[in-house]
Design a protein around this nucleic acid. Structure first.
Lengths: 213, 213
DNA sequence: CTGAAAATCACCATTCCTAGTGATTTTCAG
DNA sequence: CTGAAAATCACTAGGAATGGTGATTTTCAG
């Protein structure tokens, strides 16, 4: 008899967790060993059970997906991890690859892709969904930094973009970040130039389309 | 033989949608008639199928849960609705009750509560989870209910909102629509007031969250 | 250490946005 | 027909955004 893949599922939303459980329960070669509502529960389960793969949400109270992933990898380097997320945030993906996560998948994916990811990872390879790869090829998967595709925003610029999208004005942002209004102004001008938009409306639009707001 | 409850499930995340499907598929007296990734798909399904209950996420691109709910109630007053959300936002709950949604449940709820909500609503009663009820009554006493119906935007206002989200300035919009800048100005002011936002950034945000951009 | 990128600050001019008030005309359903 | 909502226009004023130019300091990888 073929060995089944032993999996723990982790997500802070019970409904999603139970749904995922039900979705995978019918699959022959997969065995759901445990369900966890947060990172702590995952670690407790790992002490008791033999696990092949942990499928976890990236956003969870207490210990989030990124911290959980690195914790798992430190204590149980042989256990594979697949991270799920609502959107594709480049920063988080980079952190996850640094922490040796074996896969990253959007919750928008279908069951088939989820199964494909699980099997690919179990076979010893990594799996990053196409949408994620396409968007962030430059920053992660290829060493070359081609600026043609996705405009590269600096840390500070992203920060300010978020504030703009959150309806903060220049004086407010300046006060929040303890910098001059002139500086905020410069950043906004650079953002507009880099992103090729016309005004705040364009900035907010970009922020939304890239999961930054 | 007892009649089964005919249900449509709607959520923009395929994985959650399929998971929910799998979760409910095993229930005897429930029949999942269709799955939808957005509001439009729900409305199309309603044309073809006889439905008792629509279970929908509150956050969806295109037509969101709130708009979807009111649209359903206008065209098919007999169809029940159960709205799911990640968190409990008093404002949104109030909008939903104004639009006669029959239930509101957090995604944090367990399968049992979901079934309970479905059966309660099918029996002709409303179901609002305890967490939601608490916040709802709080906001009633804080006095923000009277003036806050669902923000109904006029045709012209929607039109102008689209132009704003498309990075057009006031003079440009005025020229495009053959009206005075003063008029565009008035519309924008009304939009800001109606939607309870602070500036263009907020308008663009709203436009995006409601599939108008 | 060193150079490049990032982050910071400054000034000016123009345009645009925001806010308040008040008003007339048009549209549309009851 | 008629009233209410929608759409239109007008004026003022202050604050914010946009665009251009120039510069210094900080950070960080090679």
């Amino acid at each position: 008899m073929k060995k089944r893949i032993r999996i723990i599922l982790a997500d802070d939303h019970r409904m999603f967790l139970e749904g995922l459980h039900a979705l995978l329960a019918s699959t022959e070669d997969i065995k759901i060993v445990g369900l966890a509502l947060n990172g702590m529960e995952v670690m407790n389960l790992l002490k008791k059970e033999e696990i092949d793969l942990v499928v976890t949400d990236i956003n969870m109270p207490g210990m989030d997906g990124i911290t959980l992933n690195s914790t798992i990898k430190k204590q149980y380097p042989h256990i594979k991890t697949l991270v799920l997320s609502t959107y594709s945030d480049p920063d988080k993906i980079i952190k996850l690859t640094n922490n040796k996560a074996n896969g990253y998948l959007l919750k928008n994916a279908e069951k088939d892709e989820l199964l494909k990811a699980i099997h690919t990872i179990y076979a010893g390879n990594n799996y990053f969904s196409r949408e994620v790869q396409e968007k962030y090829t430059n920053s992660i998967f290829s060493g070359t930094t081609e600026t043609e595709g996705a405009p590269v925003l600096s840390k500070r610029e992203k920060e300010i973009l978020k504030y703009i999208a959150a309806e903060y004005t220049t004086p407010e942002i300046a006060e929040k970040l303890f910098i001059s209004q002139y500086t905020v102004n410069t950043h906004r001008k650079n953002l507009i130039a880099k992103l090729g938009v016309k005004n705040v409306a364009g900035l907010v639009k970009y922020a939304f389309q890239n999961g930054m707001a």
